[in-house]
């Protein structure tokens, strides 16, 4: 009789657990379906439902990871990082831990909190468990630098993976196309408008140079004709104004030119690059 009862209880336990798991699995599949159709808000509801009813916590890693992905897709990076962190804490093996951690890095890249992304890359690199995944770490480090607009460093990171890496070439090319803001300013100190020519703004350069020559002539002429007050007024209010303006403009032109160059590459990365992105 006892044996019979034990068999019944065992059977009962097995059925309950197995059937329960079936339903939890179904719920996970259902949530994944919604996730697949990009209805991320609703997908979060279903993952939360799964977490609530998954008494054995069989899906605690997957569900939290997916919630993190949903928030990330919705641009809610703080929430995404919170859920990726929970999934990281519930990782059952090194691969899951690494996946969560890289998702946190990727979210930080998109959030443009580059320092944090780099810090996490360094932490992963120091972790002996992931010594075989240095390429992955360097890949995300490269992306972190790209989002921080540091293309030379990005190129160096990608070069560590492969010297001919597609992104290494792109980052190096972008860095090469950029202009020097300091140089643009310095040459404008020497010749007003030179910085504008350096950055390709020829019309502005011509106008700037003209104003400076004209105002310079007025100023010098005033002093030559002993109209000292006029000389000071024109010198301060006109000449110096346009002289300072030429330096300021050179800096702004260089900054804008660099943004333009960076954006051309970023646009390519977002729309045409086939590799894995943050």
């Amino acid at each position: 009789m006892k044996i019979r009862m034990i068999i019944i209880l065992f059977f009962l336990f097995f059925v309950v657990t197995a059937k329960g798991q079936d339903y939890v699995q179904s719920q996970f599949d259902y949530a994944n379906n919604i996730f697949g159709s990009q209805h991320y808000f609703d997908a979060i509801t279903e993952y939360k439902r799964l977490l609530f009813f998954d008494l054995t916590k069989a899906f605690i890693y997957e569900a939290n990871f997916k919630i993190g992905e949903c928030y990330k897709a919705g641009g809610k990076f703080d929430d995404a990082i919170e859920y990726f962190s929970i999934s990281e804490l519930n990782a059952r093996n090194d691969d899951e831990f690494f996946e969560s951690k890289t998702q946190i890095i990727r979210t930080n890249i998109l959030r443009r909190t580059t320092d944090r992304a780099l810090q996490l890359c360094d932490e992963l690199e120091k972790d002996e468990r992931f010594s075989s995944r240095t390429d992955d770490i360097n890949y995300w480090r490269g992306w972190s630098y790209i989002f921080a607009d540091e293309w030379k460093r990005a190129a160096n990171s990608f070069a560590k993976i492969n010297f001919n890496h597609e992104l290494k070439k792109l980052a190096a090319q972008t860095d090469k196309e950029k202009v020097s803001v300091t140089f643009a300013k310095v040459i404008s100190y020497i010749l007003p408008g030179a910085g504008a020519i350096y950055t390709g703004n020829y019309l502005s350069a011509l106008l700037s140079l003209s104003w400076n020559m004209l105002a310079g002539y007025w100023t010098v002429n005033s002093f030559v004709q002993d109209r000292v007050f006029d000389g000071f007024v024109v010198g301060e209010l006109v000449w110096l104004r346009f002289y300072r303006g030429a330096i300021y403009n050179a800096e702004q032109f260089a900054i804008n030119k660099n943004i333009e160059v960076a954006n051309k590459s970023l646009k390519f990365l977002q729309n045409e690059y086939k590799g894995i992105k943050p």
Binding site: Q38, Y40, F41, I44, Y71, A73, G74, G75, K76, D78, D79, L110, F147, D149, Q252, I255, N256, I259, E260, A262, N263, L266, K267, L269, Q270
Partner: peptide, 18 residues
């Protein structure tokens, strides 16, 4: 952050131009 329903959105990679 979920008190109003939201949709997926593409995060722009580009730097906002001045």
């Amino acid at each position: 952050s979920d008190w109003a329903k939201w949709e997926a959105k593409q995060i722009p990679y580009e730097i906002p131009a001045s």
